[in-house]
Simulated scan of single mutants.
Amino acid sequence: MRTTGPCFTVSCGCASSAVQIGNARRMIADGDVDLAIVTGVDVFSVDVIQNVQRLLHGAQRTYDSIRVDGMPELLPAFDRVMRPYDRRADCVNHGEGSVTVVLESRDRAQRRGAHTYGQVLSHGMTRDGLSNPLASDQSGASLVSAIRTCLGDRWDIGQIPYIHGGSDGDVVVTAFEANAVQQLYGDAVGDLLMTSQEACFGHNGAPAGALGVALTLLMIEQDEVCPTANCEEPADNICFDPVPGTHTRHVELDYALTCNYQIGGVKSAILLGSSEAD
């Protein structure tokens, strides 16, 4: 590609391209580059999926020590339709392929008269720090920390009416997302729109971060929030509005968050803004 700047790979599982979006944003903001290309790619097979299930079984003891009483089975199937945020969620479908996002500085975009979809404003990342790297803290504390790091002192959670979630039909992911936004929004959490499009594409691993950024920027540009695919009966522990059904919701969006997670405890949060957002 005749690149002249840094070229490197990160390995953060399903959060890989999200982490790279954050790296690219920092490099542009620091003046190291004015154009960056971020790609995530993954390939799945039944053997890979079954191996993941085997490893998760090995982590069950750690899960049992931190999970909330009454939670459903932790190991979802992969042979049925995935339903993020739905009460019937018990399955994760896997997709594969590649997603590429091109980021450039505002000055460069303006000089060439580019169409601007929006802005990548900030990135925050944390790890759960649990004894088993395949476990996940259902309290949501690590995701809360990532989002607060992302917002810093410049933005307030009250400015964020929409979050593009990373739920893939796994009830553990839904649990820590619900707990996190409850802590962040408090009594206002019922007004929060939080949707996932994973059931449209399948859980595609490393491309998920770049795909989430692209989808969310399009929603910001069009002031429309896409519904959560295959969510028809929101689960009882859902405290936010997952926009069930098949129709978009009109919302004026200046800011939105997109979140991605890796088995192993990475929580990634990216703040996106409209072209006019401060």
Rank of each mutant, 00 (worst) to 15 (best):
T3N: 14
T4N: 14
P6S: 12
C7F: 10
V10Q: 00
S11R: 14
A15V: 09
A18H: 01
V19H: 02
G22T: 07
N23Y: 14
I28S: 00
D30S: 13
D32A: 02
I37Q: 12
V38Y: 05
T39S: 15
G40R: 01
D42Q: 01
D42R: 09
V43M: 13
S45P: 09
Q50S: 11
Q50E: 14
N51L: 11
N51Q: 13
N51K: 14
V52H: 12
R54N: 13
L55V: 10
L56G: 15
H57R: 15
G58L: 13
T62I: 06
Y63K: 03
S65A: 15
R67C: 09
D69V: 08
G70C: 11
G70I: 06
L74N: 11
V81D: 13
Y85P: 10
A89H: 03
N93D: 10
N93I: 08
E96F: 03
V102Y: 04
L103R: 02
E104P: 06
D107Q: 14
A109G: 13
Q110S: 14
R111A: 14
G113N: 15
A114W: 02
T116N: 12
Q119K: 10
L130M: 10
S131G: 11
S131E: 13
A135Q: 01
D137S: 11
Q138N: 13
G140Y: 06
A146R: 08
C150V: 10
D153L: 05
D153H: 03
I157T: 12
Y162P: 09
H164V: 06
G166V: 07
D168A: 12
D168F: 03
T174N: 15
A175R: 15
A178T: 11
V181K: 07
L184H: 00
Y185P: 05
G186V: 10
T195N: 04
T195V: 00
S196V: 05
A199K: 02
F201D: 10
G202C: 11
G202Y: 03
N204R: 10
G209R: 03
A210C: 04
L211I: 08
G212C: 08
V213Y: 02
L215G: 08
M219A: 11
E224M: 10
V225R: 05
N230T: 05
C231E: 11
C231M: 04
P234M: 01
F240S: 13
D241Y: 06
P242S: 05
P244G: 06
G245R: 05
G245A: 11
H247R: 15
H247P: 05
D254E: 15
Y255R: 12
N260Y: 07
N260E: 13
G264Y: 00
G265H: 08
L271K: 00
L272R: 03
G273M: 04
S274E: 02
S275K: 14
